[in-house]
Every structure is written in C-alpha cells, then in structure tokens.
Design a protein around this nucleic acid. Structure first.
Lengths: 205, 205
DNA sequence: GGATGACGTATCGAATCGATGTAACGAACA
DNA sequence: TGTTCGTTACATCGATTCGATACGTCATCC
C-alpha cells in the first residue's frame, strides 16, 4: 500500500515526490522502493481525496544577484519565464506535499487495520510505529505474531507430508529459519513494549 | 515473473490453470501465490507465443449409464449440451496445457538470465533448480551470493551513518539477520553443489 | 563546448492483483 | 427430497503498480 508509505513519511515532514521516493528507498533498505509510475498517480489520488495538499514552490533560486552582465540579464529572463509558465507544463517548481487532517485519520486506519498477511505493509507499519500509541503498537506486534505462528504451522504440515527434491527442501528450510528469526525478533519487540521502563530516555542515548 | 513459474511447473507435467495455481501456492509456501487475474492472461500470452499449447479436455464424466429414467435422460441431454457448446463459453472441459520446445528454450533463458535483484524470481529458480545443469546451478547460487553481499554492505553503510529511532533500528537488525541467514544457507547449497559426491543416491534416502 | 549525471515532474503500456461472475458437481443434512 | 455448502474450474473487470521513457534544469568535469 503506497498510501501508507506516503502518509507515513508526510507525517514527519512535508516533502515533494522525488524526495519521497528517495526516503522510502532507504527506509525499506534499498530493495522494495516504489516507482514514479505509481508514486505520482498516488499523490494525485491522495490530493483528490483531500488526504494531502500540494503547494507549488519555486526553486529557491536566489534570483541571481544583478551584475549588469549579459549573463545576469539572461538569468533574470529565464526566471521570469519560469515564473509565468507554472500552470503550463510544470514550470520547474517542486510540488511540496503536506498531510491534511483527513490524511492523518486515513493513516491511523491504515496503521491499525487488521491486515495480517501483507509483509511489506507490516514493515511500513513498524517503520512508522513511533506514531502509534503504545497499545496499538503492542496489538500490531501480537497480531503479527499470530500470523507468523499460522505460517509456521502450515509450513510444518507441508514439510511433514511431502517428500521432495533437494532444492524444494532447501527452500522450506530457509523459510523455516526466516520464520523462527522473525518470531524471535517479534518477541524481543513485544518484550520491550511490555516493559514499563523509561520510553523517553531512549532519545538521550 | 509468472512465465517462469508456469513454464517451470509445466516442465514436470501437463496441468490446467486451476491446478497450476494450487501447485504454485504450495511451492512458494502459502504466501506469494498468483491470482487468476494474472494467471489466465499469462497462459493466453504464452499460448500466443507458442511457448505452451492447450488441449481442451472433457471432464472424464462416464456419460451417465442409461437408466431409462427421466434423470438419466436429463443427464444425457446435459452431456450433449456440454459437448456441443465447447467453443462457446467453456463447456466445462478443462484446458490442459503442455510446454512446447520453444517454451523449454524460454524457460532456460528465464532460469539463467543474470537478473539478481528479484527475490521471488530467485526463489522460483531454486524451486526448479533440478532442471538446470550443475554448472548453471552453481553459477546461479554464486551470483545470488554476490548480490546478497552487496545488500549487506549497503545495509552496513546505512546503519553506520544514521542514528534512528528504535523501530527503524529494529527493522535494520531484522534485515541484517535475514541476510546473514540467507548467506549461510547459500554457502551450504554451494558447498553441496561443489562436493562431487553422489548426486544420484539422494532419491534413495 | 560537450558529455555526464543529479534533480524533478509526468505519462504510457503492460503486468498483476483482488473481487466478482458463472457453472457443474458431490456431500452434508434436515 | 430438496437445499445449501464447499470444491473444482474458467474467465473478466477495474484499479494498482511497475519499468521505461520523455522532458527539462542545473552543476561538474574534461
């Protein structure tokens, strides 16, 4: 869900499209970035739904200090052209997006809805978990835990029933390891979440 | 790449669409199955490219032995209708697909092309690895290893540079664990692949 | 002066998803 | 006896997403 990604990022600060893509790329550790082909339509969609609002912004170019030279004149001319053609084809101002109140509501929905199965959506929710209240956060982790336990059972049943070739077996082994890893990781998160000790000292480390 | 999945499965035996989806679902351990909305168009595409061939097949219904009863007559009538309307809306014969020679060539392409980044495609390649000759198989594993090493470096650089909140840190930790896991797993596979000992005894275990 | 690459918005066609429709048939069960 | 449910099976729809491409500015390096 690209909406979750966009709204989550915009909660922290206003951003334009290009920057959104960059941030998301590093947030999700390189892989699983989003493409412009989905980003810009999604932004338009969100704007139409009044979940975000766009502000056209001139490139913060310092209007090239007047030197009297030809180059200066030319630069000023270009700036005027830029200024006037905004509505036409893009005028090269960035469009900076900010989240609206409705958008914040939508984000809460996306963060807390009980969709267990989508791994990428879960990752995004964790990435933005600091915007969640502690109880929702705990609930998120525990529901995820249930989901993973279900998967482990299914995997165990499959492994028991079928006798397969070497490579399929290796894949199942890999899946089992990942699952065990994720469960241990989740348990650690849940533990931390349950311990009532200082949440606020974290920043000062 | 759905083509890879379909061609890989059809290499082993002829199948119809519904069965294809089921097999793929268990092959990929529940998650990451494919939808009908992509399966049937993909089959049509592959048939148009002559990579697979479809054979319409009546349901192996035993033509309802004549009882003379009304029910029997009705049943026979239905069977006749079924028989005649095959070309119309589907007549409820399954379409069984088999792979063609061209399809086998395409499969080799898909299995050996140096696309490193797509995790799902890699998983599929491992699932069908037994159809690969040993040297291609080893190459596949080693290229994947290089890819994962690259990701680990990128992740390390990110972790070193940025100071983040608790949850982003946890995500990076999880990624690092997965990466380490996968690398160890790959190394095991590569080791086995390199050991020249009996490949054929495997089946007899 | 000319190439290269970062920044930035945007669209196009194709691939894919998720939901839904249609239909046959066996089993459950009341 | 009929009716309702789950499974098998093919197919299409609209929406979402991807990957490639286009267009344009600006700075840097050679």
């Amino acid at each position: 869900m690209i909406d979750l990604a966009i709204l989550g990022l915009l909660t922290e600060q206003d951003l334009h499209g290009y920057e959104l893509k960059k941030r998301l790329g590093e947030l999700l550790s390189g892989r699983a970035s989003i493409s412009f082909g989905s980003l810009y339509p999604a932004l338009a969609r969100l704007e139409a739904q009044d979940h975000v609002r766009a502000v056209e912004q001139r490139t913060a170019v310092p209007i090239t200090p007047m030197t009297g030279s030809l180059a200066g004149e030319l630069s000023a001319f270009k700036a005027r052209v830029r200024e006037s053609s905004i509505a036409k084809v893009g005028g090269r101002g960035k469009k900076v997006y900010s989240i609206t109140e409705a958008g914040r509501g939508r984000l809460v929905e996306l963060m807390t809805n009980p969709d267990l199965s989508d791994d990428r959506a879960f990752t995004l929710r964790v990435a933005f978990a600091r915007h969640l209240d502690p109880s929702s956060r705990l609930e998120l982790f525990e529901r995820r835990r249930t989901e993973l336990l279900g998967r482990r059972d299914a995997l165990g049943r499959r492994a028991a029933s079928r006798r397969q070739d070497r490579y399929l077996g290796a894949l199942q082994e890999r899946d089992a390891d990942h699952l065990a890893n994720d469960l241990a990781w989740l348990d650690r998160l849940i533990d931390i979440e349950r311990t009532p000790t200082m949440q606020s000292t974290e920043e000062s480390s």
